[in-house]
């Protein structure tokens, strides 16, 4: 299913996105009301007090309290947006991290100009990695002596997730700052080298489809090409793909044992 993209926000397939979208639309209504209000007053003044109609200005300043009231309303509404909408939405995203046990875990290792998606394999445990071990075969520097890592695999620019399941991501970068962004999931996080960032999302039911992830931070010449697929699929399809990738990657090693 291709998402419906247009001149406004892309569809939201996440369970937490309503907080962000609600805030954005409340803000834009607020902005529109203020701007139109100002605009009407402004235009009226330009017409009513043009030199042709009012040849002599009045020295006395208008005394009305309207502007005070308007400012108070603006402040109160901003307080509501801040305390009632933005802070709770941010708290849900940053502080309500899902349990590690109940979530599907995946690591994202960014580099110029690709997203290496590191899956833990059937054992659900990530192998240790080290930057010294990175080479053209071993894109994320997996330690070959670590048994936890033997069933791990890496898919470049391919993030597959089972629909409806909570996904817990760990983001890191090998080189420069990137910003991991999936517009339809309302998640965006700068990925700063030397640090590890947690991120989570849950897809709504029946949102199967192939979406895009993006890089939002200038990361070099091919920043513009740093996109990848986010494949949201049924559990069966996902398991099929997962099994295929696990075999594909580590089939030989298993024969050796």
């Amino acid at each position: 299913m291709a998402a419906d993209y247009g001149w406004w926000m892309p569809p939201d397939i996440s369970t937490h996105g309503h907080g962000i979208d609600g805030l954005i639309s409340a803000l834009h209504w607020f902005m529109a009301v203020l701007f139109v209000g100002w605009g009407i007053f402004f235009t009226y003044c330009l017409v009513r007090f043009r030199v042709g109609r009012t040849p002599r200005a009045t020295y006395e300043l208008p005394k009305g309290k309207m502007s005070k009231y308007a400012e108070v309303v603006v402040v109160l509404f901003e307080v509501f947006l801040l305390l009632g909408m933005s802070i709770p939405a941010w708290d849900e995203i940053k502080n309500d991290m899902p349990d590690e046990e109940n979530a599907f875990k995946v690591r994202v290792v960014a580099e110029q100009y690709a997203w290496n998606i590191h899956y833990p394999g059937p054992d659900g445990v990530f192998g240790t990695t080290a930057p010294e071990l990175i080479d053209s075969e071993n894109l994320i520097g997996l330690d070959p002596d670590d048994p936890d890592g033997s069933d791990d695999f890496v898919a470049i620019n391919q993030l597959h997730v089972p629909v409806g399941e909570t996904v817990l991501l760990q983001l890191s970068s090998k080189d420069v700052i990137h910003s991991f962004w999936i517009p339809v999931l309302r998640v965006k996080q700068d990925v700063i080298p030397g640090m590890v960032f947690p991120m989570w999302f849950t897809t709504k039911p029946d949102t199967n489809g192939t979406y895009q992830m993006a890089c939002a931070q200038l990361c070099g010449n091919n920043h513009y090409k740093m996109y990848g697929d986010v494949v949201v699929e049924t559990q069966e399809k996902f398991d099929e793909w997962y099994a295929y990738m696990t075999e594909d990657d580590d089939g030989e090693e298993e024969e050796d044992e």
Binding site: M9, G19, I20, D21, L23, I24, L27, H28, F30, M31, L34, F35, W38, G39, F42, E78, L81, L82, M85, S86, I87, A89, W90, I93, S179, P183, R186, V187, K188, A216, Q217
Partner: peptide, 27 residues
Amino acid sequence: FLPMFAIGGLTGLPLGLAASDIHLHDT
């Protein structure tokens, strides 16, 4: 300048609130 600055100032609000900034940051 007045309406133009008004637009510039008002559109700063969604960027100044952290939650809406998630969608709009760096766009």
